[in-house]
Simulated scan of single mutants.
Amino acid sequence: MPVNRNALIRYRTIDSCLQNRYKKWTLDDLIDACAEALYEYQGIDTGVSRRTIQADIEMMRSNKLGYEAPIIVVDKKYYTYADKSYSITNIPLNHQDMQVLTEVADLLKQFKGFNHFADLNEMVSKLEDKIYTQKTHSNPVIDFEKNDSLKGLEYIEVIRKAIVAKRTICITYQSFKARDASSFCFSPYLLKEYRNRWFVLGISHQRHKPLLNLALDRIQSITGHEDEYIENTNIDLSAYYNNVIGVTKSPNQRDCEVVFWVDKANAPYVITKPLHHTQKLLSADETGKIFSIRVILNFELERELLGFGAKLKILGPRALVSRVKEQLNKTLELYNPATFGPPVDLP
């Protein structure tokens, strides 16, 4: 049975509410949550009728969409799932879903091999693997990197739509360093993924900073706002992250040449998987190879280089060498028995 986008948003919203067992959900609560979701995702502000949500609940309880959701009413007032672990997102794909996925995969496969669509290759492989496992009821043959506990993914589509529509959003955000969350108007420009974490680049209306880079997993809520959208007029977003490893960067920060030596055993790994697209091989001898990359000096670069341990030595610039030596000295201090006591034998 075909499901329109608005109905799907309501089903997912009801499902998300009923999974949250820290709150008792009345029908009115579900109505309000669905109305907010429709406004957030679709810009619909006409509200949702009581009859619509009641029909949605009955549809979710039925087998028409394959959900058979165990929705019960407690104390004749509060809606919840009888099975605490249930979610409509956990049910197997039905025949219609499989057919749609197959059609999408077949369409995307037509673009394989085109340089402009190189990023689609992984997407197609994921789709084909999903279709294969569902049809054959077997284990996946491709294990992609993933983080099932990652927070903030629900905001990706909201932010993407705001960027496309050039619409201001209000974000409630709490960084790891802040004691309390703060709310501010924000004009988003670009979504960025790095190592399975998502970030949004944009400008805060209140703080008047050139640019802010916000981690989606630190966002607590996003709502629409009537403030005028501040357009980006002086930053080339397509090239903004070209000279950086990770996401930490200031608009006027300049890159520099980073030179490092890698021992003979690990140099092939750096050659086959360059640390950055600017990587060059400068020299080689029987002990190892010397490479260079041209990037911004930031925390992510340090972490990447430190990850090689004794297999890599930074040769320049001096500021980075000093910074890494400082980090290594602090690391050694952690293993000093006089500071933290002797090692503990674990069972």
Rank of each mutant, 00 (worst) to 15 (best):
N4I: 01
N6C: 06
A7K: 14
A7E: 10
I9C: 06
R10F: 02
R10Q: 04
T13P: 05
I14E: 01
D15H: 05
L18G: 02
Q19R: 15
R21F: 00
Y22M: 13
W25A: 09
L30N: 01
I31W: 02
D32S: 14
C34N: 02
A35T: 09
E40V: 00
Y41I: 02
G43A: 10
I44F: 12
R51A: 09
T52F: 02
A55F: 11
D56S: 05
I57Q: 02
E58T: 08
S62R: 05
G66T: 02
I72Y: 12
V73E: 11
V74I: 13
K76D: 10
K77W: 03
Y81L: 03
K84C: 06
K84R: 14
T89Q: 10
T89I: 10
H95N: 12
Q96C: 00
M98E: 03
V100F: 12
V104M: 08
A105G: 12
K109M: 09
F111K: 09
K112E: 12
N115T: 11
D119P: 07
L120R: 07
S125T: 11
T133I: 06
S138E: 08
E145M: 11
N147V: 07
L150D: 05
E154Y: 04
E157S: 15
R160L: 08
K161Y: 00
I163Q: 04
V164R: 15
V164C: 12
A165C: 12
A165Q: 14
K166Q: 15
K166F: 00
R167M: 09
T168P: 06
I171S: 04
Q174H: 04
S175A: 13
K177L: 06
S182Q: 11
K192G: 09
E193N: 12
N196D: 08
W198S: 04
W198D: 02
F199K: 01
L201W: 00
G202H: 04
S204A: 10
S204D: 03
H205P: 03
R207Y: 13
P210Q: 08
L211H: 06
L214S: 02
Q220E: 09
I222C: 05
T223A: 14
Y229V: 00
I230E: 05
E231A: 15
N234V: 09
Y240F: 15
N242F: 08
N243F: 02
V244K: 03
V247E: 01
S250K: 15
C256E: 10
V259T: 13
K264F: 07
A265F: 07
A267I: 02
T278R: 08
K280P: 04
L282C: 07
L282D: 10
G288I: 01
F291G: 01
F291R: 02
V295M: 06
L297E: 03
N298W: 05
F299H: 14
F308K: 08
G309N: 10
A310V: 00
L315P: 07
G316E: 09
G316Y: 02
R318I: 02
V321Y: 03
V321R: 08
R323H: 15
K325P: 07
E326R: 12
L332T: 01
E333F: 00
E333C: 13
E333S: 15
G341S: 05
P342N: 11
D345R: 12
